[in-house]
Each structure stands twice: as C-alpha cells, then as structure tokens.
Write a protein that binds this DNA or RNA. Structure first.
Length: 481
RNA sequence: GUCUCCAUCGUCUAGAGGCCUAGGACACCGGGUUCUCAUCCCGGCAACAUGGGUUCGAAUCCCAUUGGAGAUGCCA
C-alpha cells in the first residue's frame, strides 16, 4: 500500500480564487486524513499570464489558511523541481518519446486556424493534416527550426471508461476526443500534458481537482497508457458557483463579488472562517456540526462526504460563520484584529479603543463593519429631530425639549464619569419624573450620537466620549430648539 | 451544435427502499431578555423538478422529459 500523495498545483496568477483554495484544502485534508503527503507545485507554463510575486501570494495564502505542504519549491522532497518552468526540458523529452512511439506527432499548422463556429471541432474531418505527415519529413522540418507544436495522436474508435472517486464510472465515445496539444510552440507544455507527466513523476496517488476537468480526463488516461504509467485515483470536485444577475448561476467569478482569499481577508473575513465555510461547500461531515478547526476537518474528512452537485457561494452564510468566529475570539485578539478596521487611529478615540472594541465584539460580523458602526463617535452626523420620537420609550420631540436641559444638569453633576453612574443618573431622572427609564436613555443617546442604532447604550457611549464631549453634544442638541 | 455531469427548503446540506407527517444550518418572519441595536433564548415559514416504471413499500433503484452546469483553447 503506497502512501497517499496529493498535490495542489496553482498557476501564479496573483490571487487565490476561493474555488482554488477549496481544491487545495480538500487535497490537503485528504493527505492529512490518511497520513500522507501534500505537495505544492507551481504551474507557470503560460508565460503570457505570468505575474510578478504571484508565487509569494500562493505561499502567503496557504500559510494563512493553515495548509502546510510537505514538498514544494521551498521544500525539496526529491522529485523536484516543483516549478514547471524549471522542468521545461523534461516535457519536451517525454513528448518526443510519444512522437517516437507514434502516440504524438509534430504539427506545423498556424495558430488558431478554425476560429469560426464551435461545431466543427469534433468533426471527424477536422483532424489536423499534419497527423499523416511522414515522420522523417516532420523530424527534418523540426530540425530545420520550423515552428511547431506536438499533438497527441488519438484513436477515435471505441469508448473510454474511467472511474472517479466522487462521480463514479464515466464513459465517453472516443470520437469526441481531439488531438490536443501537448507541447506548445514556445516549447512549454500545456496544462494537460504537464499534469500527467508531473503527477506521475511526483508519485501523486490522488488527483484532486475541479470537475471542469472531468471531460478531458479520458485524454489524460490515454497519455498514461501510452507511457505505460499507472493511472492515479481521480477526485473531481463539484464546482463553486455564483449567482448571476439574471438568477442563473455560473462558475464563481469576480462579477459575483469578492472571490479571492486576499480580498475576503482584507474585507475582514477571518482565514479560519473562510476555510471552515468553503470546506462545507461541496463536502459534508454527515452530521449537523458546522464549526470545525482545520485539524477537526482533517479528522472528519472522507472522500465519501464529497458532493457531486455544484454549490452556490453564499456570502450571507459566510458572514454568519465569520461572526461565529469573531464571537469566539478571545477579547484581546478581537481588539487587535479589529483595530485596523475601526478608522480611529490618531483621534481621541484611540485611547478608548478597548471600551469601543468591547461594544463591537458581539455586533460585528465582518471586521469591516467596525468603521461604520462607530462613525458617530468621531462626529455626530446630521440628524432630524424626529429621531427623538420613540414610541416604546415614550420619547417625543416636545418632551425631549423640556427633558434634555434637565438631563444635562444631572449628568453635569456626576463626579466619577463612567457608564454605571451615567446610567444611574438617567435612571434617577426617570424616577424623579415618574417616567420609564427608557425615555431619558433614548433622549440622551440620540442627543450624543445622532443615530437611531448604536452599539451600546447612552452610558457606554458617553463614557467613551468623555464628560466634556458628551455635555457639549447635549448642548448642541438643546440649541436646536 | 456535440459530449459529459448534476437535480431535496431561496442557499449550504442530512437522507444510500420502510426509522421521513423529510432532519440541521444560513437567510427571512414572529416572540422573550435588553437603556436603542447586537448577543442570548423560544417559535414559525420553506424542499424531495415532472412523467413513467421496479417493489408490499421510493426522496432513495431504472428509464424518459425538463431544467441547470461544465467541456469543446498553443488558459489552467
């Protein structure tokens, strides 16, 4: 029984799509759940899409997500290099081996000849004319330096069947297969070819990838067979979808919202919450449990829990899960994580951050909510006097006009300015005037905040604002009558 | 167009012939607690796409239809 080896093979495009991250996660979980190895391989065969520092983004993302790899460009396991562009010569060598065996051929056609309709592609007549070229003549052209690609020669008769660990047995007719390009004009391999070669050379036992590769899998198998290699276990994953404006769904992409790990994190989603959420998109622990640490996921992970149908990415549920993680954070940790999102650095509020954070902790779902919730602390927004009207606490514009100066008086007499005493003063006012405590509470809170909804009540808010500022705000409100 | 795959509440899902008057979670709607809001607690709404089979019995098996998605790149 050989050791389970899975790999994550991202392209360095500069950002990590959550669908991609989920693929990495499942590959990692599979390896960890079976005490195997998780390998990182960089697929940079498309030179046109090369992005500076993109590999760093990959490292950073995996690290933040907690997906540690056992082998990779920075961790040699003996089957490297782990960056495809550094393996360039290897692919040529293997491709030429297939040319010799007759399983591939040189093609000298111009790039992109059939740009017309989509229908001719699988026509039997659509085979490349180069496939019948005399091998010796073709080799001569290659030797002469003529631009060319190497194509896989596919026998279009019969059917191909393979088994996927998630989708089961799949059979297709070979006539729908095309002579795909293995080696590009620039001497780089295509994804389709490099994958087969590398997965074999790196002893990958389980190929975990999105189901968009399901229909090209037979072509990979033909390649494995031509080389005489064992076919790995395929684990195709259901796609992650986004909701389109027209109500339909399609592969999750930028138009659906933030889809990269970095964006989500910068918006205030916690890496742990993102990982937890995407783990449940297409996989189920078969129980009612939803909150898992990474290690708990690895423990619970089974291929049999993988789903076949596409899953729609639901930002609302991610939000909820993020809020669960935030609430579960130790307070000090939350305060530290939320501070950059509060927008108070350099203001008088910075010194009050601990108190502010305490109010925010149970109310923030995504860290970026912070700034909006406490904006009123910096400056009272323009507000209409009708805000003083509140049925439940029996507050209205008229009684506020008479109450506010008296409330101010009461507050001004407080010697030790803290939430408890402020609330106490307001309650005392209510008792003296035989009204519900809610009335002065509402009146005072609106006067100092200008907001119908605030995190925390008048006592907490005024404590943070300080006595001077609080009284100043009440004076400003009084002046409006 | 062709090929492949998929199909349980709006969303993520449990369910692998009787345990299902279909369970959980998010969202939504009520109620309670609370100095507004949030937290917390309680409750509610809401689904087996359709039609045929198979079977004593089907959400679960088979077929068809419909719907959706993916593939069909010298992208990955």
């Amino acid at each position: 029984m050989s050791e389970t080896r899975t790999r994550f093979a991202p392209s360095p495009t500069g950002f990590m799509h959550v669908g991609n991250l989920r693929t990495a996660l499942y590959a990692w979980l599979l390896a960890r759940s079976e005490n195997g190895k998780f390998i990182l391989r960089i697929e940079d065969t498309d030179q046109a899409r090369y992005v500076e520092n993109a590999v760093d983004v990959i490292y950073a993302t995996l690290k933040k997500a907690g997906l540690d790899h056992d082998e990779g460009p920075d961790k040699d396991g003996g089957v490297g290099p782990y960056i495809q562009s550094e393996r360039k010569n290897l692919y040529r060598q293997y491709a030429e081996q297939l040319v010799v065996s007759g399983d591939a051929y040189y093609c000298f056609c111009d790039k992109c000849e059939s740009d017309d309709s989509e229908e001719s592609v699988h026509d039997a007549a659509d085979v490349c004319p180069c496939c019948t070229m005399d091998p010796a003549a073709a080799a001569e052209k290659v030797a002469a330096g003529e631009p060319h690609v190497i194509r896989q020669r596919i026998d279009r008769s019969g059917t191909s069947t393979f088994t996927d660990a998630v989708f089961g047995e799949i059979t297709i007719e070979n006539k729908v297969l095309d002579d795909q390009i293995l080696l590009k004009r620039d001497n780089m391999p295509t994804y389709n070819f490099a994958n087969v070669v590398d997965d074999h050379l790196m002893n990958i036992t389980h190929v975990v990838r999105g189901s968009e590769y399901l229909s090209s899998t037979p072509k990979y198998n033909l390649l494995y067979r031509a080389f005489g290699w064992d076919i790995p276990t395929y684990v195709h994953l259901p796609l992650i979808m986004g909701r389109d404006a027209d109500g339909n769904v399609s592969k999750l992409s930028k138009r659906h919202g933030s889809v990269s790990f970095e964006n989500l994190v910068s918006e205030g989603y916690l890496p742990e919450a993102i990982v937890n959420y995407i783990a449940l998109l297409g996989w189920s622990p078969k129980s009612d449990r939803e909150i898992f640490t990474l290690n708990e996921l690895a423990e619970a992970f089974r291929i049999s829990g993988l789903n076949k149908s596409p899953a729609v990415f639901d930002y609302a549920k991610l939000r909820w899960m993020n809020s669960e993680y935030i609430k579960a954070m130790p307070f000090a940790e939350f305060a530290a994580a939320a501070k950059p999102f509060a927008g108070i650095s350099g203001t008088f509020l910075e010194a009050q951050w601990e108190k502010i954070a305490a109010l925010l902790h149970s109310r923030v779902e995504v860290l970026s909510d912070c700034a909006g919730m406490i904006g009123f602390l910096q400056a009272v927004p323009e507000f209409d006097l009708t805000l003083f009207v509140h049925k439940k606490s029996k507050s209205d514009i008229e009684n506020t006009r008479t109450d506010l100066p008296l409330i101010r008086e009461k507050l001004a007499n407080i010697t030790e300015w803290n939430a408890e005493n402020i609330s106490g003063a307001l309650s005392a006012f209510a008792a003296e005037h035989e009204v519900k405590a809610g009335r002065p509470m509402w009146q005072a809170r609106i006067a100092v905040s200008g907001c119908a909804v605030t995190p925390g009540g008048p006592g907490e808010i005024m404590e943070i604002l300080g006595k001077d500022e609080s009284l100043k705000r009440i004076d400003a409100a009084i002046a409006r009558w």
